[in-house]
């Protein structure tokens, strides 16, 4: 079955895709394409907004349905991303393959009945774990939204008339990454393929004037997509590795360099 489709063919499928009316092989092809194409993602969302209006009836959901939903929320604790405490073993679970989260809470409740001391300890641990879990969940959400926004901004810049791609490579060719710069002086660097640095180290981006390097900002030890501002004085972009939190003047070797369009 054919799954490799050209961009034009994918575009033709977007309306049908938004209505969940594609056959599985074509749906897979669109699913694979969307993360790489902001324009097609935007079109699918537009179609879904229109479809949502068609579905709009203004009627109420059946009575009692919310009670069932809220009851099932209360029956399950927040999803725990951290492992249970050692004295709350999952082996207490009566069903080996059941979801860990639900039974972690039941085993805690069992322990509450056992001793006051362990109950107090369990409360502290579970609350601690849930708070950490909430922070983690919010962090994850913020990271996903921020990263996704930058990736979309990168793709939007890439698709904007007049934008230029800057290929950044190491002198020995072992490392390469890509930036896109717009005619308005905004740049986006897609740096996910740079190796992760040790703790306390950071990549740093530089604008090269031909005479000196001017810092455009530290990138962190494991950068994904970052944005930066450019001015006309720069002829190239360079990346170095520095000690955190970055430096004003660098004597470190350039890890990757790309020439800016004139």
């Amino acid at each position: 079955m054919r799954t490799e489709l050209r961009h034009g063919e994918i575009e033709e499928l977007l309306g049908v895709f938004a209505l969940d009316a594609l056959e599985p092989d074509e749906r897979d092809a669109v699913d694979q394409h969307l993360p790489t194409c902001a324009r097609c993602r935007a079109e699918v969302e537009e179609h879904r907004e229109v479809a949502a209006l068609l579905a709009h009836t203004g009627a109420d959901a059946p009575e009692g349905l919310w009670d069932r939903i809220s009851a099932s929320l209360e029956a399950e604790p927040p999803e725990l991303h951290l492992p249970p405490a050692p004295f709350l073993p999952r082996t207490d679970s009566p069903v080996g393959d059941a979801p860990a989260t639900a039974f972690a809470r039941r085993s805690w409740q069992t322990r509450v009945a056992a001793t006051v001391v362990s109950a107090a300890a369990a409360v502290i641990v579970v609350l601690g774990v849930q708070m950490a879990s909430q922070d983690e969940r919010l962090d994850e959400m913020a990271q996903v939204l921020a990263l996704d926004a930058l990736e979309r901004a990168y793709q939007a810049a890439e698709g904007t008339s007049g934008s230029e791609i800057v290929e950044m490579k190491s002198f020995d060719g072992s490392m390469d990454t890509q930036a896109v710069v717009t005619t308005e002086g905004r740049g986006y660097l897609r740096a996910a393929n740079l190796p992760v640095l040790d703790e306390g180290r950071t990549y740093q981006l530089w604008g090269d004037t031909g005479a000196e390097r001017v810092s455009l900002g530290p990138l962190g030890a494991n950068p994904e997509v970052v944005s930066f501002e450019l001015s006309e004085q720069y002829v190239g972009l360079a990346i170095t590795e520095e000690a955190e939190p970055g430096v004003i003047v660098s004597d470190q070797p350039i890890l990757a360099y790309g020439q800016l369009p004139e």
């Binding site: 579905a55 009836t57 203004g58 009627a59 109420d60 959901a61 059946p62 349905l65």
Partner: peptide, 8 residues
Amino acid sequence: HAGAVYAL
């Protein structure tokens, strides 16, 4: 939104 979701 549940009304619209249910209706659909």
